[in-house]
Simulated assay, not measured.
Amino acid sequence: MKSIEVVAGVLTRTQNGAVEFFATARGYGNYKGFWEFPGGKMEAGETREQALARELREELAVQVEVGDFICTVEHDYPNFHLTMHCLYCSMVGGELTLLEHEAARWVPLGDLDSLKWCPADIKVVENLKKCYI
Score class of each variant (00 low, 15 high):
residue 64 V to P: 07
residue 37 F to C: 01
residue 66 V to P: 00
residue 73 V to N: 06
residue 124 V to E: 13
residue 75 H to W: 15
residue 5 E to T: 08
residue 76 D to Y: 07
residue 1 M to Y: 00
residue 101 H to P: 11
residue 110 G to K: 09
residue 19 V to G: 14
residue 40 G to C: 05
residue 35 W to D: 06
residue 119 P to K: 02
residue 107 V to F: 03
residue 33 G to H: 03
residue 35 W to N: 09
residue 31 Y to C: 05
residue 26 R to F: 09
residue 68 D to L: 03
residue 131 C to F: 08
residue 44 A to M: 01
residue 31 Y to G: 03
residue 93 G to I: 08
residue 9 G to D: 05
residue 25 A to R: 15
residue 27 G to D: 08
residue 70 I to V: 12
residue 123 K to L: 11
residue 44 A to R: 02
residue 5 E to M: 10
residue 60 L to P: 00
residue 71 C to M: 13
residue 42 M to T: 05
residue 77 Y to T: 07
residue 85 H to E: 09
residue 33 G to E: 06
residue 116 K to W: 02
residue 38 P to N: 08
residue 54 R to N: 14
residue 95 E to L: 13
residue 78 P to L: 10
residue 130 K to H: 13
residue 115 L to Y: 04
residue 97 T to E: 06
residue 47 T to A: 05
residue 32 K to H: 11
residue 28 Y to M: 14
residue 114 S to T: 00
residue 47 T to W: 05
residue 13 R to G: 14
residue 98 L to D: 03
residue 31 Y to A: 10
residue 53 A to I: 08
residue 53 A to F: 11
residue 93 G to K: 12
residue 122 I to N: 05
residue 45 G to C: 08
residue 46 E to G: 03
residue 115 L to E: 02
residue 31 Y to L: 13
residue 69 F to C: 12
residue 113 D to V: 01
residue 130 K to C: 14
residue 131 C to E: 15
